[in-house]
Amino acid sequence: MGGVPVDRARRVNEMMEPTAALIGGVAQVLQVDAATISPDTVLEGLGWDSVAVLSTIAFIDEHYGITVSGEELSRCATIRDISGLIARS
């Protein structure tokens, strides 16, 4: 029962550079090819709407055991921003 235990090492790593797993997760949420986006791709215009934010909350919760704020995630412009949010959540 309960969520995935927080993987500290993975969190620290996220702070340095968004991982391929995070980029892949966001790409899947946005239904785009992961090879076409980078940590600094601007998400707006790629379908970064409230449904995408919901799906990303679920992905981060499942993958990292961290529940990020919906409001803060909505304000993230790039995957690097999301990575920073995970690191400080």
């Binding site: 029962m1 309960g2 969520g3 409230s50 449904v51 934010v53 919901l54 909350i57 679920a58 919760d61 529940t67 990020v68 704020s69 919906g70 409001e71 995630l73 909505s74």
Partner: peptide, 19 residues
Amino acid sequence: MNGPEIFTFTLKTIPGLVR
């Protein structure tokens, strides 16, 4: 309704409530 924020609230609160 702020859907993402409500979702965050439930993920944080409901598992503990059930436990």
